[in-house]
Simulated assay, not measured.
Amino acid sequence: MRRRTFLRLSAGAITVTSAGVVATEPSGAFAAPSTSGTPHHDAQQRVVVAADGSGDFVSVQAAIDASAGGDVVIGVRPGVYHGQVVVPAGKPGITLYGLGRRPRDVVIADDRANGTPKPDGGTWGTTGSASVTIDGAGFRARNLTFANLFDEAAHPEITNRQAVAVLTRADRVEFRDVRFLGNQDTLYVNSADAATIARAYFRDCYVEGDVDFIFGRATAVFERCRVHSLDRASTPAGYVTAPSTSITNPHGLLFTRTRFTSDAPDGSVFLGRPWHPSNDPAAIGQTVIRESYIGAHIGATAWSDFGTWPWRDARFAEFRNYGPGAIVSADRPQLTHAEAAAATPAAFLRGTDGWAPDLCK
């Protein structure tokens, strides 16, 4: 399995080996670009997180806890910030902005898995394993990295290895120039409950993992991203998506102008399989991939059954993809031109309130 080069783990310590040095304004006065596409308002709250104590807070969670929500920009100086982060539903409108030169310069991470024991007994479960949980509507992140550093090789005693880097359950969340790092279940795009639709938009992002590493029931659009499958040295090497979209939701996962790459052998990875949580028959997952590059790691049969649930009953489709893994066959359903005209980022994200994030213009 490929090891990530941006972190070095040594004797239990985590250090950044490629962090940049960035000059910022004094604490509380940095000039982060607006993530909404409009100038800053005077009422906007801006604070700085710095692990060395040079900012307003030394941890991301402390900055979130101190905020009242609304229009808050939390600038995070370069470093690794270890520990779980939760953005509660009562604090909407929070933006996390990395103050490094590159997304890799600011890392927000934790290292627990589904099967990791809890201090008070039991285990964390998949949801509880998340390094970052986002319940606050209108959350935005830019120019940073979210990671779950759970080391599978170091914990052979843990068999439930789902380890989430980010769990989103809020509506109208946006990510730009953000990296999501993990192995199994890296990015969990979900909603508050099966009857609720939550929308998420990802632009110019990087997501890596091996098994079901983009999954959940949310409506999520990935535009101009890179989706990278790690090689876990097994057969199959992995599955990219595991949507659990409710049959009542016409919009699940959409990838457009995205690159699907891998370290795994040719033909060893599936684009997805249908996840039915608790064997819910109404979870008819949707993954649509259009006008994207697909590497040779994806074989002629790109979709897989999930246990007894057949992939052909799910809503899987492609349109005008290219690359060595973009094979058009009976096992690779394609959108018609009429269907493709309706399967756009704007159509997926619009909802009943006409949401159109600036990032997709």
Rank of each mutant, 00 (worst) to 15 (best):
T241M: 13
V189L: 15
G182H: 00
L167F: 09
R257W: 08
R226E: 15
N249H: 10
F260R: 08
A195P: 01
V189N: 15
G182W: 00
H251Y: 13
N183P: 05
S191K: 04
F202K: 02
E223W: 10
S229W: 03
Y188E: 08
D266G: 15
L181S: 09
Y201W: 10
T245G: 00
A218H: 04
D204N: 13
R232D: 13
N249D: 10
F215P: 06
H251Q: 11
Y239W: 12
T219I: 00
E223N: 10
V189T: 14
D171H: 09
H228I: 02
S191C: 08
V221W: 00
T241A: 12
G238M: 02
F202I: 05
P236E: 09
L187K: 01
T256G: 02
E223K: 13
D263A: 13
D171F: 02
V189R: 10
V269Q: 01
V269L: 03
R257L: 13
D212L: 05
S246R: 09
A237Y: 04
S268I: 03
S234Y: 14
T186G: 07
A194M: 13
A220Y: 01
L187C: 04
R232L: 14
I197Q: 08
A218T: 03
Q184G: 13
E208W: 00
A195L: 15
E223D: 11
P243C: 02
R217T: 04
Y201I: 13
G238T: 05
A200I: 09
N249V: 08
A198V: 06
I214K: 05
L271R: 01
L271P: 04
F180K: 00
Y188T: 07
T235Q: 10
A237P: 00
A198Y: 05
T256I: 07
S262V: 05
T186H: 04
T248Q: 13
T235V: 15
S229Y: 02
G272D: 02
F222W: 04
L230F: 08
T248C: 10
L254K: 00
S229F: 04
R217I: 06
T245W: 03
S191T: 12
C205P: 06
Y201F: 12
R179E: 14
L271E: 04
V173I: 09
I197D: 12
S234H: 15
P265W: 03
I247A: 12
D177M: 11
L230I: 10
A220M: 05
A195D: 14
D263R: 07
R176W: 09
C225T: 03
Y239K: 11
R232H: 14
R179H: 15
P265H: 03
D171C: 07
D266T: 15
R224S: 11
R224K: 15
F180H: 06
F270D: 06
L254T: 01
P265C: 02
S268E: 07
A195K: 11
L187P: 00
F222E: 01
L271M: 13
Y188F: 15
A200N: 07
D177S: 13
S234E: 14
A170G: 14
R224I: 08
F175D: 01
T186V: 07
D171W: 06
R172Q: 11
S262R: 02
V173M: 05
F215R: 12
A194K: 12
F222A: 00
H251S: 07
D231V: 03
V221H: 02
G216Y: 01
E174F: 03
R203Q: 14
Y239H: 11
V211M: 10
I214E: 00
R179N: 14
